[in-house]
Write a protein that binds this DNA or RNA. Structure first.
Lengths: 147, 147
DNA sequence: CTCCTTGCAAAATATTTGCAAGTAG
DNA sequence: CTACTTGCAAATATTTTGCAAGGAG
């Protein structure tokens, strides 16, 4: 009906490499992390191009933007329904398997909202790296060796 | 055990007004929105102070930071367990009642994660303002009156 | 050829931080 | 008095955007 407003369709080298590299990863990279990776194959690509393509790929439903990712967006090319755990300490995101059914949205009505579109379960956790860092930090506090 | 590292405890006027004003709201304001409100009572307060206090209040468990709020954090002084809907268009957040039980985290194990701390259900929706804006936009496209 | 897309740089947003002065306890 | 806090301004961090040149269809 309003596809008139979706003129972007050209498959450029940049766009295809960005999508290809994102699909290889299950690390839910930030725009900048993906930029660093793509740059190995396309040294002259700019960060702005990565951002513009991530917007395009998200809006055309080819990838997902994970907004619940602290102050930096992360991206996921795995379009199968699944949940994520996010490390409260470093922001790393991992997939949860097996997937859990998303809670239903049919019966929910909220004043001020015209429609409820979808639901999502999210988990907070502590990744192993941060858990280890925290443990050695606490040990240092318990056995202080300076002043 | 490590309260040694939590020296911030002074109740300043700024801190108490920030908390007080946030508690009056169920609009989940951004740091800047809250700053504008607090400024009516404390005209000389700075945005940096608001940010620093929001960090402190979050870390001391008196308020919640809603990180799933697009690219701008929002804050909530309602510490009762409850869920939120977020407008995919403008980012506005509303509370959902009645609260739904959070999915259990006990049986979840994820490679690379030491602990799963908590779970949360989130909803995406379209608020009435944005729904209205979208409707009149589509009408304009359907009945174009210019070129 | 057309106009979507890119690279580059500057701008816009959002959040954090250094420092000297202020103030709660 | 001590040292946590603040206001101010500058610094970071993240994302968006204007523009002329490049390239896909």
């Amino acid at each position: 009906m309003s596809d008139l407003h979706h003129p972007q369709t050209r498959m450029t080298q940049q766009r295809s490499v960005i999508l290809e590299e994102l699909r290889k990863l299950d690390t839910h990279p930030t725009a900048d992390e993906l930029y660093q990776i793509v740059r190995l194959r396309l040294p002259r690509i700019s960060l702005g191009t990565v951002y513009r393509n991530l917007v395009f790929l998200t809006e055309s439903g080819q990838i997902m933007r994970l907004e619940s990712a602290g102050n930096t967006n992360r991206f996921d090319a795995n379009m199968q329904p699944h949940q994520h755990v996010r490390c409260v300490c470093c922001g790393a995101i991992a997939d949860i398997f097996p997937p859990v059914m998303a809670p239903e949205t049919d019966r929910i009505h909220v004043p001020g909202f015209a429609r409820i579109l979808q639901s999502r379960i999210e988990y907070d956790g502590l990744c192993e790296k941060c858990a280890a860092a925290k443990a050695s930090e606490e040990a240092a506090a318990y056995y202080p060796n300076s002043a």
